[in-house]
Amino acid sequence: MKKIILGLFLAIAGTQWSAAQNSTADQEIIKLSREKWRWMADKNVAVLDSLFDEKSMFVHMGGSWGKQRELETIKSGGIWYKKADIHEVSVKVINNTAILLNRIDLLAVVGGNEVTNPFMVTEIYVKQNGNWKLGVLSFTRLLTPSGR
Protein backbone atom coordinates (compact mmCIF):
# COMPACT_ATOMS: atom_id res chain seq x y z
CA MET A 1 0.00 0.00 0.00
CA LYS A 2 2.84 2.38 0.89
CA LYS A 3 4.48 1.67 -2.47
CA ILE A 4 1.26 2.53 -4.32
CA ILE A 5 0.85 5.81 -2.43
CA LEU A 6 4.51 6.69 -2.97
CA GLY A 7 4.17 5.82 -6.67
CA LEU A 8 1.09 8.02 -7.04
CA PHE A 9 2.83 10.87 -5.21
CA LEU A 10 5.88 10.66 -7.50
CA ALA A 11 3.69 10.47 -10.61
CA ILE A 12 1.73 13.56 -9.56
CA ALA A 13 4.89 15.44 -8.59
CA GLY A 14 6.52 14.54 -11.91
CA THR A 15 3.48 15.73 -13.85
CA GLN A 16 3.40 19.02 -11.96
CA TRP A 17 7.15 19.52 -12.51
CA SER A 18 6.73 18.84 -16.24
CA ALA A 19 3.81 21.29 -16.50
CA ALA A 20 5.83 23.93 -14.64
CA GLN A 21 8.64 23.53 -17.17
CA ASN A 22 6.21 24.09 -20.04
CA SER A 23 4.57 27.06 -18.34
CA THR A 24 7.98 28.75 -17.94
CA ALA A 25 8.54 28.70 -21.71
CA ASP A 26 4.91 29.71 -22.27
CA GLN A 27 5.28 32.67 -19.91
CA GLU A 28 8.53 33.71 -21.59
CA ILE A 29 6.80 33.80 -25.00
CA ILE A 30 3.72 35.60 -23.64
CA LYS A 31 5.94 38.26 -22.05
CA LEU A 32 7.96 38.66 -25.25
CA SER A 33 4.77 39.01 -27.31
CA ARG A 34 3.39 41.69 -24.98
CA GLU A 35 6.70 43.57 -25.15
CA LYS A 36 6.60 43.29 -28.95
CA TRP A 37 3.18 45.02 -29.01
CA ARG A 38 4.64 47.84 -26.85
CA TRP A 39 7.71 48.15 -29.09
CA MET A 40 5.45 48.30 -32.15
CA ALA A 41 3.29 51.01 -30.53
CA ASP A 42 6.44 52.98 -29.65
CA LYS A 43 7.82 52.43 -33.19
CA ASN A 44 10.99 51.03 -31.60
CA VAL A 45 12.42 49.57 -34.81
CA ALA A 46 15.90 49.06 -33.31
CA VAL A 47 14.58 46.50 -30.81
CA LEU A 48 12.16 45.00 -33.34
CA ASP A 49 15.03 44.59 -35.82
CA SER A 50 16.77 42.30 -33.34
CA LEU A 51 13.54 40.41 -32.54
CA PHE A 52 12.47 39.78 -36.15
CA ASP A 53 14.34 36.97 -37.89
CA GLU A 54 15.95 37.92 -41.22
CA LYS A 55 13.55 35.53 -43.01
CA SER A 56 10.45 36.60 -41.04
CA MET A 57 7.12 37.10 -42.79
CA PHE A 58 4.24 39.44 -41.95
CA VAL A 59 0.67 38.88 -43.16
CA HIS A 60 -1.77 41.81 -43.06
CA MET A 61 -5.22 42.51 -44.47
CA GLY A 62 -3.57 44.34 -47.37
CA GLY A 63 -0.81 41.87 -48.21
CA SER A 64 2.27 40.10 -46.96
CA TRP A 65 5.93 41.03 -46.86
CA GLY A 66 9.26 40.48 -45.14
CA LYS A 67 11.22 42.00 -42.29
CA GLN A 68 12.61 45.11 -43.96
CA ARG A 69 9.25 46.25 -45.33
CA GLU A 70 7.60 45.67 -41.94
CA LEU A 71 10.27 47.73 -40.18
CA GLU A 72 9.94 50.50 -42.79
CA THR A 73 6.14 50.44 -42.42
CA ILE A 74 6.43 50.79 -38.63
CA LYS A 75 9.13 53.48 -38.78
CA SER A 76 7.27 55.59 -41.37
CA GLY A 77 3.93 55.26 -39.59
CA GLY A 78 2.35 53.53 -42.60
CA ILE A 79 0.82 51.33 -39.91
CA TRP A 80 1.00 52.66 -36.37
CA TYR A 81 0.10 49.88 -33.96
CA LYS A 82 -1.19 52.23 -31.25
CA LYS A 83 -2.66 49.68 -28.85
CA ALA A 84 -3.33 45.97 -28.81
CA ASP A 85 -6.10 45.16 -26.34
CA ILE A 86 -5.37 41.48 -25.66
CA HIS A 87 -8.36 39.31 -24.71
CA GLU A 88 -6.99 35.75 -24.97
CA VAL A 89 -3.56 34.19 -25.35
CA SER A 90 -2.58 30.58 -25.96
CA VAL A 91 0.87 29.12 -26.52
CA LYS A 92 2.13 25.77 -27.76
CA VAL A 93 5.86 25.07 -27.63
CA ILE A 94 7.16 22.33 -29.92
CA ASN A 95 10.89 21.78 -29.45
CA ASN A 96 12.49 25.11 -30.46
CA THR A 97 9.30 26.56 -31.98
CA ALA A 98 6.58 28.47 -30.13
CA ILE A 99 3.17 29.17 -31.63
CA LEU A 100 1.25 31.96 -29.91
CA LEU A 101 -2.33 32.98 -30.68
CA ASN A 102 -3.64 36.36 -29.49
CA ARG A 103 -7.27 37.40 -29.79
CA ILE A 104 -7.04 41.18 -29.80
CA ASP A 105 -8.74 44.43 -30.65
CA LEU A 106 -6.09 46.47 -32.44
CA LEU A 107 -6.24 50.25 -32.42
CA ALA A 108 -4.08 51.41 -35.31
CA VAL A 109 -3.54 54.31 -37.63
CA VAL A 110 -3.50 53.12 -41.23
CA GLY A 111 -3.13 55.62 -44.05
CA GLY A 112 -3.84 58.47 -41.64
CA ASN A 113 -7.11 56.92 -40.41
CA GLU A 114 -7.55 55.58 -36.88
CA VAL A 115 -9.25 52.17 -36.97
CA THR A 116 -10.02 49.39 -34.53
CA ASN A 117 -10.26 45.81 -35.77
CA PRO A 118 -10.75 42.47 -34.01
CA PHE A 119 -7.98 40.02 -34.96
CA MET A 120 -6.70 36.59 -34.20
CA VAL A 121 -2.95 37.10 -34.45
CA THR A 122 -0.64 34.16 -35.03
CA GLU A 123 2.94 34.61 -33.89
CA ILE A 124 5.57 31.96 -34.51
CA TYR A 125 8.86 32.18 -32.65
CA VAL A 126 11.96 30.04 -33.16
CA LYS A 127 14.65 29.69 -30.50
CA GLN A 128 18.10 30.31 -31.97
CA ASN A 129 21.26 30.39 -29.86
CA GLY A 130 19.19 30.73 -26.69
CA ASN A 131 17.09 33.65 -28.00
CA TRP A 132 13.55 33.70 -29.38
CA LYS A 133 13.22 35.21 -32.87
CA LEU A 134 9.89 36.09 -34.45
CA GLY A 135 9.41 34.18 -37.70
CA VAL A 136 5.77 34.91 -38.55
CA LEU A 137 3.26 37.57 -37.53
CA SER A 138 -0.10 37.01 -39.21
CA PHE A 139 -3.31 38.98 -38.71
CA THR A 140 -6.67 37.29 -39.35
CA ARG A 141 -9.57 39.71 -39.10
CA LEU A 142 -12.46 38.30 -37.10
CA LEU A 143 -16.02 38.75 -38.34
CA THR A 144 -17.32 39.66 -34.88
CA PRO A 145 -15.83 41.85 -32.16
CA SER A 146 -13.55 40.01 -29.77
CA GLY A 147 -16.06 37.80 -28.01
CA ARG A 148 -18.44 40.57 -27.01
Rank of each mutant, 00 (worst) to 15 (best):
M1I: 06
M1H: 09
K2H: 12
K3E: 06
G7V: 02
G7F: 01
F9R: 02
L10C: 00
L10R: 15
L10W: 10
A11P: 00
A13Q: 08
A13G: 05
G14L: 14
W17F: 14
S18I: 11
S18D: 04
A19S: 01
A20V: 13
Q21E: 09
T24C: 03
A25R: 12
I29Q: 03
L32G: 04
S33H: 08
S33I: 00
E35G: 05
K36F: 04
W37E: 12
R38L: 06
R38P: 04
D42A: 15
V45A: 05
V45G: 04
A46Y: 14
V47K: 14
L48A: 08
D49H: 02
S50Y: 00
E54G: 08
E54A: 14
K55W: 06
G63T: 10
R69T: 06
E70F: 15
E72G: 12
E72R: 12
T73I: 05
K75D: 08
S76D: 12
S76V: 11
G77V: 08
G78Q: 10
W80R: 10
K82T: 01
K83D: 03
A84C: 03
A84G: 06
I86S: 10
I86M: 09
V89K: 01
S90L: 05
V91R: 02
K92P: 00
V93P: 14
V93L: 13
V93S: 12
V93E: 11
I94L: 14
I94R: 13
N96L: 10
N96F: 05
T97P: 04
T97D: 11
T97H: 15
I99H: 15
L100F: 02
R103M: 07
R103I: 06
R103W: 08
D105F: 11
D105R: 00
D105T: 09
L107Y: 13
G111T: 07
N113K: 12
V115E: 03
T116Q: 15
T116I: 14
N117L: 15
M120S: 11
Y125E: 01
K127Q: 04
K127G: 06
N129C: 13
G130Y: 07
G130F: 10
N131Y: 13
W132M: 13
K133V: 11
K133S: 14
K133Q: 14
L134W: 04
L137N: 15
L137V: 05
S138M: 08
S138H: 07
T140N: 12
T140K: 10
R141Y: 05
L143W: 10
L143Y: 09
T144H: 11
T144C: 09
P145T: 13
P145F: 15
S146R: 14
S146I: 06
G147R: 13
R148S: 09
R148Y: 05
